[in-house]
Nucleic acid binder design. Structure first.
Lengths: 359, 359
DNA sequence: ATGAAAGCGCTAACAC
DNA sequence: GTGTTAGCGCTTTCAT
């Protein structure tokens, strides 16, 4: 491969755009300024902006005009401090990298929260668990009104801190018997088991898998392995032939993985891949070996990413309703915040086996 | 396709996890509590925590112990209010949906900011420009120390608001002559032109494209179209044969698009696709028509997503150094915040043509 | 419907 | 190296 770069760093254009934009030396326009212009007290101005029903329409109009004329932007920091409500929701995700199915959930969640007047602040948790506690502390320090965690947090210290923070917390995208507070997710163990069952039900008898060390991936692998043994999908007493890859999963892992497995276990007739991207790699490897999918070898993925229905053959995979997870997680927190009603602590959102043609 | 759902909503487990976690009724542990336990003044406690070098090691130790014993978590809200620094950076992205190349930039940016002691708050801009101004106002209301915008914002009102906010702002992932403040990106017009040049240089003479209405995609299409005409890659006086798809781009658009183009222009020998995912679709369509890539038809994409080197044949595409964009954007803001040094206003990060085998 | 006073938790500014 | 005082901008509480 050749690589041609188009690259240029233009010279500094000093001052062309930064003039007067420095944080220093700027006068802050406060609610008091608005009130002065409108000829009323600050508290009335506050009410006109935040609880218009408490003031006359005439006052509302004057305040709105005054605010616009002086270019007032409320300072939520100050408001939060006094009211003890930040209207901020923190959402901790493992990573923001492309191809993560839970981004759909984050998106749906954001929409729900935005509609309810909350802003969502995304924090990358990282796969480095040593930094977990610091992140949690940094997040709590901002005093969000609620916290959504994607993927159950592992460190006990971090969990304790969250629990002690005294704010509504929802864990998502997984299942556990001991949630910090609330939980909206599904069982990865069950997913693995269902994949094995599906392969069994479709007549496959010798399975393998291409998986990774990521915690939820491991749970699926565990569920798959247990069910496969129970159903006789491996030689008696043997383990499931497994190709272990590094996270993050990539298409090429599917090619390498299937190649590796077939070289050692030529009688495999089905393979479970930890993600759809990996499954596509497996499809390609099968094709390049002249193996017909699903006749000679079945391929199953996980995630039902948008291209899963467009592969050749269309991919049989697991669909998780990420939007539902996001909406429900938001609803849990919003309900908890708006009143003292009891909210379900644990919601199993389930999943679906999308039986297409690759298995 | 059949679909089998595994679904269960467990009954409410009232009170098992939510006990005492309600926001109300909790006593806030403040710095004053820590100071009292440590037997010193609040300001000294503050210094011990934030500027340890200003106090004796003995004081540091006592404060740390006191903080740990009472379970103190600093309130950044209160601190920000007084110091006028929130240590918060707002990052506006079009969408968080999977497959967006700029997520790499966001990730790199987050790492830089985290290392410098800032937290990044992600805001979804949405493709709905009517909500743009509200989002900008909501963001400014939190008084971030800086703002990073991915993709140039279109609404003039929103741009004005940002400009007036008086904080360092970096626009990324695009080029313009009139940035709000600072800019780190590359020219999508140039990208389109380079793609046309690459096809021309490799002997292709009749090009088409599969593209979308997204603003930056349109710029690439424009650049491609202009250069293609200049280079004689279309019939004299004709436009570039184009298949216009809806955003977001999907693999199937590539199949549909190439099919559509070839049906009408059977003599096409090259096609530019607005994204790698679309290009993969085009590769599949070409293969299913028995067309050899790159011999009979060339395919080029954009983005150099992680699977681009794993397709069959490996995809010729455009690589953008997202990490560099993220790092540079963070550096611009961090520098501006740490001193009054002049920071380059406009940085063109460039891009590379990854010449693999599909073109 | 409107206002006055107080204070949220912290840190800047200025002592000592 | 440590303490005192004041105040960030807003909203709560209580009064009118």
């Amino acid at each position: 491969m050749t690589k041609k770069s188009v690259h240029a760093i233009k010279p500094v254009q000093a001052g062309t755009a930064g003039e007067g934009l420095s944080a220093r030396g700027r006068v802050n326009i406060t609610l008091a300024d608005v009130a002065r212009v409108a000829g009323i007290s600050t508290i009335t101005a506050s009410r006109a902006l935040n609880n218009p029903s408490l003031v006359t329409t005439e006052t509302q109009r004057r305040v709105r005009e005054a605010a616009a004329s002086v270019g007032y932007v409320p300072n939520l920091i100050a408001g939060s401090m006094r009211s003890n409500r930040t209207r901020l929701i923190a959402c901790l995700v493992p990573t923001i990298a492309s191809g993560s199915a839970f981004l759909v959930a984050v998106h749906a969640m954001t929409e729900s929260f935005t509609a309810a007047g909350y802003q969502v602040m995304l924090g990358e948790r990282g796969y480095d668990h040593s930094r977990e506690e610091q992140l949690v502390e940094a997040v709590i320090a901002r005093r969000p009104d609620g916290i959504v965690v994607t993927g159950v947090m592992l460190s006990e210290a971090a969990r304790r801190r969250l629990k002690n923070a005294g704010m509504p917390i929802v864990e998502t995208w997984d299942m556990t018997d001991t949630p910090i507070d609330m939980l909206v997710g599904f069982s990865h163990l069950q997913v693995g088991a269902e994949i094995a069952k599906h392969l069994h039900a479709n007549g496959y008898r010798r399975v393998g898998m291409v998986t990774n060390r990521e915690p939820r991936g491991e749970k699926r692998a565990q569920g798959f392995s247990d069910a496969a043994k129970r159903l006789g999908l491996v030689a008696p007493g043997a383990e499931v032939p497994t190709y272990l890859m590094d996270a993050p999963s990539r298409m090429k892992h599917g090619r390498e993985g299937l190649a590796h497995l077939l070289d050692r276990y030529p009688d495999l007739d089905a393979v479970y891949c930890a993600s759809d991207l990996v499954a596509v790699g497996a499809l390609i490897e099968a094709k390049s070996r002249g193996l017909q999918v699903p006749k000679q070898i079945a391929v199953m993925g996980f995630g039902d990413l948008d291209f899963a229905m467009d592969t050749d053959p269309p991919l049989t995979t697991i669909h998780v309703d990420g939007e539902a997870i996001g909406r429900q997680a938001a609803a849990c927190i919003i309900t908890r915040l708006s009143n003292e009603d009891v909210v379900p602590s644990v919601i199993d959102i389930g999943f679906s086996v999308m039986a297409r043609e690759s298995a």
